[in-house]
């Protein structure tokens, strides 16, 4: 495929004019990044793929609304679309049912934790602890820790202030620290 080194900005311009090749280049370039956000936000492969697909389709249909002059990188805009979809998805899920994220009572955690340690990888326990975080705290952590965004970039992606992101990160790390400490040998 030609023009694979074209900038994101010019690809978006071309997509706004219905250029399918430009869209394929952009989608191929960023698909895994968007999927990683959706996957860590939703803890489900199928939902994450659906969100990624919807995010890419929105990029196709809303490319003309991207504001070059805003100064934000295209990737931040892509993250923002994905983030909004993840938040909406979580709201839909919440309306359907209340999910029990930690299936153990607090006083029984250490007992079952031993069993979990034996059977599962630490990564799975982290995945479970992340799932138990409130959505905005999780998003702040996903953007900053896993995707490597600066607090300012994460704030733009989340439509929040930098101070809000800082607050969310502090809360997220504290909550995770407390949750993961319940599992022997993890922290």
């Amino acid at each position: 495929m030609k023009n694979d080194n074209t900038t994101d900005e010019s690809l978006i311009d071309r997509i706004a004019n219905g250029d399918e090749e430009a869209f394929t280049i952009l989608a191929k370039r960023h698909m895994n990044l968007l999927y990683a956000v959706a996957r860590r936000m939703n803890n489900n492969k199928e939902d994450a793929e659906e969100i990624t697909q919807e995010a890419l389709l929105r990029i196709w249909s809303k490319a003309a609304t991207w504001k070059k002059e805003s100064g934000a990188a295209v990737t931040t805009w892509l993250y923002r679309i994905t983030y909004n979809l993840c938040i909406d998805e979580k709201r839909k899920m919440k309306n359907k049912s209340t999910v029990e994220l930690f299936d153990d009572e607090p006083d029984r955690v250490s007992l079952s934790a031993e069993k979990k340690i034996q059977n599962k990888q630490t990564g799975e326990i982290v995945e479970q602890a992340l799932t138990a975080l409130p959505k905005r705290q999780r998003a702040a952590l996903v953007f900053c820790h896993y995707q490597g965004l600066s607090n300012a970039e994460a704030a733009t992606a989340m439509g929040a202030t930098v101070k809000a992101v800082e607050g969310l990160l502090v809360r997220a790390r504290k909550t995770l620290q407390a949750e993961l400490q319940k599992y022997e040998g993890v922290l």
Binding site: N32, Y35, A36, R39, Q121, T122, Y146
Partner: peptide, 9 residues
């Protein structure tokens, strides 16, 4: 936290 890796799409 880094031990939580995910697969590609």
């Amino acid at each position: 936290l880094d031990s939580y890796n995910i697969e590609d799409a």
